[in-house]
Each structure stands twice: as C-alpha cells, then as structure tokens.
Design a protein around this nucleic acid. Structure first.
Ligand code: FES
Ligand code: FES
Lengths: 141, 141
DNA sequence: GTAATAAAAGACAAAAAGGTCTTTTATTAT
DNA sequence: ATAATAAAAGACCTTTTTGTCTTTTATTAC
C-alpha cells in the first residue's frame, strides 16, 4: 500500500508524539534505533517532513526533532501525502491513466468505497489522539 | 496499492475475458497494443498467470492466450496474489514485521476494516461477471 | 569566540521494479 | 517433413526505491 519511506515516516512521527516534546527533542539516532529503521534514510524523511512543517526541528546541542502544538494537530494523512504524494488516494486501482466516475474502470465504484475506508484509517485521528491511544492501549509502533 | 505488474495482469485477464475465447485465442501483441502496455513485459506476466492456471495458452499458429471455463470462474484476487504475492492483503499498514490483533499497531483495527473493503473490490465478482458488466455498462479497461 | 553538537545537504551504492531484446520450444497448417 | 507461428525462457538494460557515507551549516554551552 504505502511505500517503505512512508511507513518509516508515519512511525517516526508517532514516536515523536509519544517520546518527545518541545523541551525534550529527539535525535535521528534515537528514533532510528528504536524503530529499527536505517538512520540516514530516516534523516532525509524527517527533513522532508520538517520542510513541510509536519514536524519541527532545531540544530545544535540539545537540538533534534519534536512536534509543536500545530504539528500535533495534523493527521497521518498529511504525512502520507508529503512522502508518497497525494495521488496515492485517487489513482485508478487498475492503473488507468485517469480515475473518474465519468470514464470508470470496472472496479471504480467499489474502489471509491474502499478508499473512503483507507482515508479514514489515516485521517480519523490527530497525531495527538493516536499517541494517547497508543499509550492507553499499549500499542506497538 | 498494487504494483504496475499486477495492474497490467488484471487488465490483461479482463481483456481476455472480453475479447477472446477457446476458439479465438489472443496473442501478446494484440493485448499489449490494445492495453498500451509493454509487450515483452506483459508476456512474462501472462506466462506467470498461465503457469499458475489462471489463464490458458497454446503455442504455435493460431495459438495464444485464452480463458477456459475454469479460468473464467476465478477472481481478480487470485491474479493479485499470483503477481504481487498473497501478503499484500495482510501486511501491517505501518510496516511492522507482523500484523496481528495480539500485538496491533495503532492503525490495525481500522486497517482490518479497510482491508475487507479492498478484498471485496478484487474478490466480489468472478472474471466472467466482471466481463459482462464491462460490456453492459461500457466500462474501460 | 570556540568547541561540541545535531540537523541539512549532497554524493554514492545496492536492491528492486520495470522494461527490452534474443533464443528456444512447441504447435499446426501446408 | 517443412516452414511458419506464437508462447516460453532467459540474458540484459533502465529507472526507481531504498540505503550509506561524508561534508556543510546552524545552534548552544562554555
Ligand atoms: S477508474 Fe479505476 S478506480 Fe477509478
Ligand atoms: S498491526 Fe499494523 S495493520 Fe495490523
């Protein structure tokens, strides 16, 4: 479904929400180690998210990545859209050049429904709320 | 969602259902040209499907690919599973090494629902039925 | 202002996916 | 039998994705 990059990015954002805050910024090393993800590769993803203001960062000693209040309000959907591009949610499931109800493929209408489901998966909750649930229900990231 | 290979394969199977039959076998060239898909690349996909008995083929003059009665009964799900592997339907959406309700990721339960939706998209109808709908409703493949 | 720190940036390398071309094998029509 | 045909098989190339390593830039603590 989503690219590996995208999955790494989503998990990293959740890790930030769970383990860091404006006072306790986290370095790439920690995040990468904890999530078992290639460090330098993750670094680039975080830079990309940072550039797109989905996460925040500061350089230098005691610097690192963190989520500011605005960042916590975003959904994983935005993460997906920044890393994999917004088209992941509206390309034809059969690979036709355009997906439209005017010129639909045989799976189009069913696919629309399923897409709703997928959107809800990544858009249903804010990062903040997800983090709370992860804590409360002891989930894995 | 699905790989390019997989999309090519699904469309090719539908094309076979629509335009060919045991008496009128179709060559790779025709299919590739009509679907705008790289010919030799498609050839390999068709071979793979053939080997897995999702489609049928014969060599030599007036040979080609076609669907026998059994083939028409299958669903696109089998095509997907042959080309992309069965795991596309049960890997963790966050990329965790295992997806299970015992050790779920934060998106797991929502993801299960969406997966149902996806399965229905590719499993809801037999090839045969899909072909009929494509004809009746003048859909694009 | 200097040294240490950590992100940003960029150059490369490896692996996987996607794509092309050629040779071999089976089939069939003559 | 022979020639023509079309799938099967396999060698090879290209692009994209994933991953590594090094250098630069900004920040902060001293
Ligand atoms: S046209 Fe294929 S999913 Fe919309
Ligand atoms: S554990 Fe992540 S989707 Fe099941």
């Amino acid at each position: 479904m989503f690219s590996k990059s995208c999955k790494y990015a989503m998990r990293a954002v959740l890790y930030l929400a769970l383990n860091g805050n404006e006072e306790k910024k986290l370095g790439v090393k920690e995040i990468a180690d904890e999530l078992n993800v290639p460090k330098h590769f993750l670094a680039k993803l975080l830079q990309q998210l940072s550039k797109n203001q989905l996460i925040s960062s500061t350089k230098g000693p005691s610097g690192g990545f963190y989520l500011n209040d605005q960042n916590k309000e975003t959904s994983l959907r935005k993460v997906v859209e920044t890393i994999d591009g917004p088209e992941v949610f509206n390309t034809c499931i059969l690979g036709l050049p355009v997906c439209s109800s005017e010129n639909p493929c045989p799976l189009h209408f069913k696919a629309l429904e399923y897409r709703e489901g997928l959107l809800e998966v990544v858009e249903g909750k804010k990062i903040e709320e997800l983090a709370r649930r992860i804590k409360d229900e002891n989930l894995t990231i």
